[in-house]
Nucleic acid binder design. Structure first.
Lengths: 414, 414
DNA sequence: GGTGATCAAGCAAACGTGTGCAATGGGAGT
DNA sequence: ACTCCCATTGCACACGTTTGCTTGATCACC
């Protein structure tokens, strides 16, 4: 059986068809792709060496004579040769490519994180595929499948707010993965998260210190880890001050201004409307502030408002928004650095928690009184990486640090 | 020579080495990649057919028996088989991948466009690489090289605000390319652009109608196509009203609120500060509004402000911003649709111009008077796609006939 | 019952790169 | 001069697909 197969494959037909195909191939190459990119073999021909030698020369292998290598590099340069990442990916089984799954890049938080990820990825020779899930389970499945087919080396997910069949699907891919500001309870997944509870609690405590007692909470759609934790921080602050949690005062929007405005309008129509609002994020706060103004009330004289994220527009709102700063860019970088370790086989910190920082601006003031000197910014907590590698990692990329950050001991000075 | 080669390749060693390697491959497969993804050959083995048959079955080729195809698909499904896009890309020379080069996705305009692009790309089975240039020529070169090595089928660039050596570099790649809101004067490059002049002129005319005469312009960094055109529209409006253009009143920021605020502060310190400001975009307007408030002045009572883009926050500013709407998402989709045609070999409209729409809100009012009924939105112009492809394929001369169409007469209705 | 025609499936090559191993050649050591 | 070693280079694969051509088999038709 085997004999027969082998003799058959080695008999005349093979040689004949082989040669004919070679001719056919040569004759049809030209019409197919008029001007294809030069390949490694083209360079080899030009340099009068074999293509493996070119390959080695271009990756600075010590196996090739320095003089030859220099000559080859010069020729390759002149010919505008660019090695094909797809061919390389096929043989090395590593594409140096990662996928970024995001609800939508139109969300400023997501695009901030994306920015940091792209930066870190690019610095390490990785390219990133952008995939929007649109908070649609069907589409999320589709894009993840697409990433799998493209053989990405890793995946970063932020706000994967859909079905629970999602994680198993990703796990089945057997691809290193890092979550940003999301987490599957009970499951062990690598993640980078902001200290949601701490941040939300700090904001609420700040309101309490200003004398507020009727403090509402306007959240995101419920069910997400981030939402749950921020609500929890709010509750903790209330409990700490001996204020009973009132479920009527905890409503939810959709993470965007419009939905939040609608939710806030309802709150303001109640018999005892809140004098302060702790918001899920800045987008929410923006909508809440509009609802307050639409009611003919003033911020912060009548109602104080806090946000979360410190997006670029927060300080430009009127009044400037008191909020909890989230170093989005840095978090993206951290997620990518973490993923790089995972992909390299090292095991890294599973869950990195980034500390939140309360930024007090003009949208919060004493209850029913004009705010006096609340406008200076102060640090509630300092961004600090709990990972042991923080010292080393930070020395390299300090882009986020150079921006608006001040580092130093964080202490309340209000 | 040839004879020798042929005889060698057809002689015993081939068969032997073939078998030996097969064994070796099997024995070293395990240690190298503990659980590699199933390949088409694995499926073939399972289905007891050859791998080409599997290939054809999976792409619904009519060459394979429907029953066999069904069986193969079932087995592939069960094995969780996902074809490797990288292997496919190697043989087909098409990666179904496009590159998106953007200054930074943190910019809301860019992320809006990116969103549309990603949507359209994904709908057509394309994946998109995200690349930030950071307005840095060095980095821009680097990311474009990376895209080239990854063999993207096409490239979309938005705000490529760097050196003039850039376009030649891209052209050398010989890759279909579409620009969004950017264009190289004198060069023939496919692009999707907003009607910058029209939009800016409409905004300025709106201010003039409200009685303003001292109207300033706060721009972006100069030298970009978009900036030049918007400034030009502003000048046209002034000229139309017989107002002399004052170079002192045309300053520039950096496209972000901070820079714009600084520029505006300087303007407000002059002997005769403007009573209205036409801004390059909404980010600029946001900074300008803060500078006005910081000076103790009110918008629009003391100074009116217009923006450009209609970003999500525009209507939530206090007062809500009068601005020129730019359908970012749609523009991204259009760019991608255009690129798809280019990649398919069809020739499409070279330059698509999207009409701008003035949205009047509360940030503009009569000069030195309280605004009365300016809050309703009205349409200045309607977005309308100049799609000649729906009618008929352009008959060759796309330059003369299908160049920069503008369908729908943009007429003032104020 | 022979002869094409048609359908189904397999063979062999190719895409462009990386890499283990063999081959070549020259110099050093004896 | 012979052997051995090392530096350099080439050969022959492999990676996982797609696809042109060939082969086998079935079937209708004369």
């Amino acid at each position: 059986m085997l004999e027969k197969d082998r003799s058959k494959s080695a008999s005349a037909p093979q040689g004949v068809s082989g040669r004919r195909l070679a001719q056919a191939g040569a004759s049809r190459r030209a019409p197919r792709q008029p001007s294809r990119q030069p390949s490694i073999k083209d360079i080899a021909r030009l340099a009068r060496v074999s293509h493996p030698t070119v390959s080695r020369a271009l990756q600075n292998s010590p196996l090739v004579n320095p003089a030859t290598a220099a000559k080859i590099r010069k020729i390759a340069e002149a010919a505008g040769y660019r090695p094909s990442a797809v061919a390389r990916g096929l043989v090395t089984r590593r594409t140096r490519t990662v996928g970024l799954v995001v609800t939508t890049v139109a969300d400023p938080f997501a695009s901030g994180v994306a920015c940091g990820i792209e930066q870190a990825a690019n610095d390490h020779g990785y390219a990133v595929f952008l995939a929007n899930s649109n908070a649609n389970a069907e589409r999320e499945r589709k894009v993840v499948q697409a990433l799998a087919e493209r053989r990405v080396d890793g995946i970063i997910v932020t706000s994967s707010r859909v079905g629970s069949d999602y994680l198993p699907m990703l796990a089945q891919l057997n691809v290193p993965m890092v979550l940003v500001n999301d987490q599957y309870p009970g499951e062990f997944v690598h993640s980078v998260m902001i200290a949601n509870e701490d941040g939300s609690r700090a904001a609420t405590e700040h309101l309490i210190e200003l004398g507020h007692r009727r403090i509402a909470y306007v959240g995101d759609r419920s069910g997400y880890q981030t939402e749950t934790e921020r609500l929890e921080g709010y509750k903790q602050a209330l409990a700490g001050a001996g204020i009973a949690f009132d479920a009527e005062h905890a409503v939810h929007g959709d993470g965007w201004p419009g939905g939040a405005a609608a939710a806030m309008e309802a709150l303001l129509k109640t018999a005892e409307p809140p004098t302060a609002v702790c918001c899920y994020n800045d987008m929410t706060a923006m909508g809440v502030m509009r609802a307050i103004r639409a009611r003919g009330l003033r911020v912060p004289e009548d109602v104080s408002v806090t946000g979360f994220d410190d997006l670029f527009f927060a300080e430009f709102l009127e009044p400037p928004l008191t909020t909890v700063r989230q170093p989005m860019r840095r978090m993206g970088e951290m997620a990518m650095e973490n993923l790089l370790k995972l992909m390299a086989g090292e095991d890294s910190v599973a869950q990195v928690k980034v500390e939140a920082e309360l930024i007090v601006r003009g949208s919060t003031g004493r209850v029913h009184a004009h705010p006096s000197d609340q406008t200076q910014e102060f640090k509630k907590q300092v961004l600090r990486l709990p990972s042991p590698s923080s010292a080393r990692a930070d020395s390299g990329s300090d882009r986020s640090g150079g921006g608006t950050h001040r580092s130093g001991a964080g202490r309340r000075n209000g």
